[in-house]
Design a protein around this nucleic acid. Structure first.
Lengths: 353, 353
DNA sequence: ACACTCGTCTATCGCGCTCTAGTCACCGCT
DNA sequence: AGCGGTGACTAGAGCGCGATAGACGAGTGT
């Protein structure tokens, strides 16, 4: 089994096991038919008899033939590929991607992933995706300015997930941030909290809405004097920083609404290192309900975004826009729902703190 | 700003902003040169004067031209694309991917990601990758049987990361599992533990080695009677299940070596829900040192695998094999190192438990 | 005057596939 | 016989690009 095929190899020829990959022409020759017929068979189109179909498939199998997507894409007007930009560190994106694959497959599309990274900014990721002939883009939580998104949307169907993006030609799918935050504040106030801090998400998608909703909800509870927004973003690091800031104060707030789950994780990390117990000393609420939130022993109270529904709608939007380019921009807003778990509890009595 | 461009659109023509994407020919026409020259410029090859170069680039920019990768790949013998299979739920894979992007870019390669999922098994992922003309495959923690990997390796340079895969034509990069596990056991024994359970990873990459190393290390400490291996895999779910199993016993072990970090997370989840405190009541060690392990407030003691080095070596292996197909299979084994954090401590005195 | 080189640019083939417009044999029908 | 119709198959153009061989003019040396 090892090193078979060596008998045909002269000193100058390549090792035969790594010969050029077979093409349609090879399959056609072996099956004794024309290239076109092989194409028909592989596209599963009518126009070939049962026997030849089998003969061709057998020949292809023997040669280890595999259709070449690049050539396919090139020859076809449509590529049937959706490009998805992800932050590979973001557990919520993982949830989204799984659902995107499922829905794309259902609709007959392929999915290409490209991840952000320290050396890969959003433009680079988008370039890579477009370079691979993606027909449409699905951007998970992009930070890019609206103008850039609009520019993209002008020539490529683009769906932004997880943030508002009022650009013509761009569809957006996001949750009703205000509802989610409001529920969070209501829950905490219901437990008896008053000193409720919000860690902001900075430029991150959805942050502005969450911040505003927090302020509005606090005011509605006549807690406008307790409003406090700490700077941050959507990484664990920012949660940690915010935690350290809080620890420097002479008195901790009794509850924190983090910008997202990752931020909440970092925050809890910093707090528990300092001996602060959650939820006894302080309550924490996250945002996303990524799989990490409920599987880790953190058992985080958080605002649930329905990843599956978001992903499904995003894919459908993209495909619908592909079918009809003149569709007006749509903004799909899903409901958010607070999921109460173990990181929230009534506050300690403050009178002896 | 809304609906601009409508002035050029007759009822039957497409909205002009979404016309066909421009090609080299369009750029050439606009710049008043031949197609070939545009090609030269975009490949950054010598053979064009400074002025025409600029003129062409300007024309391309005005048209919003973007080279088409599919066509590029097709025309070129080389595609310069590496295909990477990931489990998008696995935080350690995220660490690996970031480093893979970096090294690939350094060597002039592109990276295509394809993720496993409920409806996407390994074969499907590999098919997708190969279909997109990846020259080489990097498989992160594949479960596939060796025969299949060997088959892949026979026609495509393949690098397996995170597990042994003794197949000709396949390179592997993994850590010295035995060293890592041994350090874990040594650490626990040094703290005074004796009842040390291991949660197995089942078919998951590296599991067999970890299991064997655990058993060997236990024997070396004359703890062969304490050896206990619970079934599991590398998901949070399996850790949870194992935790429940342990909780059913009349007496908990004093320490657990989980199959990986995710398993450890699930385990800690189950235990702490049941009121078991970590590390006071029980010590837990993970495996991978994924970014989750140190950023979450879990502060997990774990066996560090150097993601960056693994990724770098994997990419280099793939590229070297691409340069010379006849290279013998290599197995690169990196050192593992226990990182002691907060989930391990001396055991409670057992005499009153 | 010649051949020769060099830098700049062009014509053209082919990558592996899809897809339109056919060809061809065979059928039942008038 | 002649007709249109149908199912099975093929020829060939073209997708957007890379790459090679060569064209062309300007300079160089003899």
């Amino acid at each position: 089994m090892l090193e078979e095929g060596a008998e045909t190899a002269s000193p100058t020829t390549r090792v035969s096991t790594r010969a050029k990959r077979p093409t349609m022409a090879d399959v056609a020759a072996r099956a004794g038919v024309s290239r076109a017929l092989v194409s028909i068979v592989f596209r599963n189109e009518p126009g070939a008899s049962r026997e030849t179909r089998e003969r061709i498939l057998r020949a292809a199998d023997e040669l280890g033939y595999r259709p070449d997507n690049a050539a396919r894409l090139l020859a076809r007007s449509r590529s049937m590929v959706l490009g998805v930009m992800i932050n590979i560190r973001n557990a919520f994106h993982a949830d989204l991607v799984e659902a995107i694959y499922a829905e794309a497959e259902r609709l007959g599309y392929e999915v290409l992933l490209s991840a952000l990274g320290p050396t890969r900014d959003e433009r680079k990721v988008v370039e890579a995706l477009l370079g691979h002939r993606c027909e449409a883009l699905i951007l998970l939580g992009p930070n890019a300015e609206t103008a850039y998104l609009a520019e993209l949307g002008a020539h490529t169907p683009t769906v932004v997930v997880g943030r508002r993006a009022p650009a013509s030609g761009v569809d957006t799918v996001h949750t009703a941030e205000n509802k989610g935050m409001r529920q969070g504040v209501d829950h905490l106030v219901g437990l008896g909290h008053r000193a409720i801090v919000h860690i902001d998400g900075g430029d991150e998608p959805g942050s502005a809405e969450r911040r505003q909703a927090y302020c509005a909800a606090m005011r509605d509870h006549a807690l406008q004097d307790e409003i406090r927004v700490l700077p941050g973003d959507h990484t664990e690091e920012s949660g940690k920083t915010a935690g350290e800031t809080l620890l420097h104060d002479d008195r901790l707030p009794t509850a924190v609404l983090a910008g997202n789950d990752r931020c909440a994780m970092g925050l809890m990390n910093a707090l528990s290192r300092a001996g602060v117990s959650i939820p006894k000393d302080i309550s924490v609420i996250g945002y996303d309900d990524s799989h990490i939130a409920h599987l880790s022993h953190i058992n985080l109270t958080t605002v649930r975004q329905d990843a599956e529904q978001m992903a499904t709608l995003a894919v459908r939007s993209a495909v619908e826009r592909l079918d009809d380019h003149r569709l007006p921009s749509r903004e799909l807003i899903l409901d958010a729902r607070l999921v109460v778990r173990g990181t929230t509890a009534p506050p300690r009595h403050r009178d002896r703190s």
